[in-house]
Amino acid sequence: MEEMTYKLCFYVPVSHVEQVKQAIFQAGAGHIGDYDCCAFQVLGHGQFRPLDGSQPFLGQQGEVEVVEEYRVETIVTAACLQAAISALRLAHPYEEPAIDLWKLEPLPA
């Protein structure tokens, strides 16, 4: 039986993309067959407005901030999932990083 696999997607400012990718790869994410450090990334613009009580890495409370960010997608097995997400959160500069997670179905033979 195949191990459960997930697609992990997150958004990270340009300044920290390599740091965060290396952290999740060291935690076991990004393995596909005989390859490691597998990921796809695309540059775009993210936006957010820090609210009262926040401690933003970028921007000021009450003001919308637009920043160049990468959307990074990779694969992670169930066995490495918690470690990869913990590593992502520790390496990411935002106090509330945007993270998406999808459970993947096995590909047909």
Rank of each mutant, 00 (worst) to 15 (best):
R71V: 00
A79F: 09
Y70S: 03
A29N: 00
I85Y: 03
S54Y: 05
L101G: 03
S15T: 11
G30Q: 06
G44H: 09
I99F: 09
V12N: 00
G44I: 08
Q61W: 09
G44T: 05
K103L: 15
G62I: 03
I32P: 09
S54Q: 12
Q19E: 12
F40T: 11
K7Q: 10
V67M: 08
P97Y: 06
E65S: 11
I32K: 10
E2W: 15
P97I: 04
C80W: 03
D34K: 13
I24M: 02
C37K: 14
L107P: 14
G62P: 03
A39Y: 15
Q61H: 11
V72I: 01
A39M: 13
Y6W: 07
F48H: 09
Y94G: 11
D52F: 11
C9W: 02
I32H: 12
D36M: 14
Q55E: 13
P93L: 08
P13H: 02
G46S: 09
V67A: 10
A91H: 04
V66P: 02
Q61S: 07
F48L: 08
V64E: 10
I99L: 07
H45K: 15
V67E: 04
E68N: 12
A23Q: 00
F48Y: 13
Q22V: 05
P97T: 04
A23G: 04
L104K: 07
A109Y: 11
Q22A: 15
C80N: 13
L88W: 05
C38Q: 06
A23E: 01
E69A: 02
G59P: 07
G33K: 05
Y11G: 02
V67R: 08
L101W: 07
T5M: 14
V14H: 04
H92I: 02
V14C: 08
Q26L: 10
Y94E: 14
V72M: 03
